[in-house]
Write a protein that binds this DNA or RNA. Structure first.
Lengths: 242, 242
DNA sequence: ACCTGAACACCGTTCAAGT
DNA sequence: ACCTGAACACCGTTCAAGT
């Protein structure tokens, strides 16, 4: 499904040649939300590396430096963009399901979100969390508390789960979504063939699997392993293991 | 019509090294390795975002376009740089230690490497592997084979472990190493305090732990969980658990 | 406060030409 | 093949000035 864009007064993409039709004194009637939304459209359609202050400004029909009224610099815009997207994660309701299932579902939702924004992957891993990241963390911590995991250990668990989830998404995305990478990516398979058969014996034996894209199954399996390991060590007195 | 500005008076040159003291015909005696090494120095000392073709060229005392003799474009240089660094991972010898200990040590070595190059973290997650990445994978696959894990499952295990390891390093680094981020980073702690006490109850209860930097202990714990989960599900008939 | 014009100090990359 | 000079089409950001 396509992300529902708030349709404001903008005419679709005719940023070609409408240079700011204003004299120094006049206002364009910009808002912070409009700038953010425009940045988002560009990032989603053309990739993060195409997202520039000048391009955002052009798509809004203003001069480049007009944006600095709303964002101190480009990283401020990036941080806001990141947090806005994070706000769309569908939190699993406080259902009666077992806490570990709820956690798994939360991680799946996070991964789906990242995959829906392939160009922003690195942002998710490197930018410190804003308000919406906290909202995600809160949901996870509550689920953990349901499972009897609190305190420092809960934070460690949360970090491990998020690391795995976001890291997995970060690894699987660029290989398939980068701009002019088609040639280089397919080269991975043929690179294996060129390796010395002796010193790369195991690699060659697994050539087929290594060439395949990581996907849902790999993610689910690893997530299950991690949760299982957490339970085995953290929940001492649990007996109702299925 | 916007006029491209090109009116350039005689500005004083102020580059560090001697500006290319050659006439069009003369050679600088560059090598691919020299270019790579110079790029590496810049990336390590000033960060990845400061690594530009022009800066590398300047540090070598050549014109910017001279580099295109050795690298097709900037991403080619980046890929080569990435693989060169990967080549420095210390592979654990084929010792008699249990396979899971060997794997854990391999992941620790990988994390240490990433942490030694804080500016290159995203590179490790997003760039497809070159020859040295294969070398790392080979070592891991052999250890897994020692543990009786082969075929598709071995690749799944390898992916899960690498995802966790590189993802963890990617998350812990930027928060402490980014250029002008000091103010923003410390803001994470105070952001928690500003949250609504009710809807962010769990977050506030864990404020202290959440504010702390993830570190060695967190990494080790998560790695142990993951490996334990893998063993529990993959190794059916193992009894000698300590 | 919100915007423009102009400028500064950069980018990656290409093209022609010299040896 | 290896390099320079010059140019093209971009960047982020700042500064002064207009309303």
């Amino acid at each position: 499904m396509v992300t529902p864009m708030k349709s404001r007064g903008e005419q679709p993409q005719r940023s070609r040649r409408v240079p700011h039709a204003r004299t120094p004194g006049q206002r364009a009637g910009l808002t912070r939300e409009e700038v953010l939304s425009s940045a988002r459209t560009i990032a989603e359609q053309h990739g993060l590396e195409q997202l520039s202050m000048r391009r955002v400004a052009a798509s809004l029909g203003v001069a480049p430096n007009a944006l600095y009224t709303y964002f101190a610099d480009k990283t401020a815009l990036l941080d806001a963009l990141f947090d806005a997207i994070l706000g769309e994660v569908e939190l699993p309701g406080p259902g009666a399901e077992p806490w570990q299932d709820g956690l798994a579902e939360l991680m799946r939702a996070s991964r789906r979100l990242v995959l829906k924004h392939p160009h922003l992957t690195t942002l998710f891993l490197t930018r410190p969390g804003g308000r919406n990241a906290m909202r995600l963390g809160e949901a996870a911590l509550r689920l953990l508390a349901d499972g009897g995991i609190r305190g420092p250990e809960a934070v460690t668990v949360l970090r491990a789960l998020l690391t795995y989830t976001l890291g997995f998404a970060a690894m699987e995305v660029p290989r398939q979504a980068e701009p002019g990478r088609t040639v280089r990516t397919q080269g991975a398979g043929s690179l294996i063939e060129s390796l010395d058969p002796e010193s790369f014996r195991a690699t060659r034996e697994h050539a087929r699997e290594l060439a395949s894209h990581p996907g849902d199954d790999d993610f689910e399996t690893g997530l299950r392993w991690l949760i299982r390991g957490i339970r085995a060590e953290s929940i001492v007195g649990e007996e109702d293991e299925p």
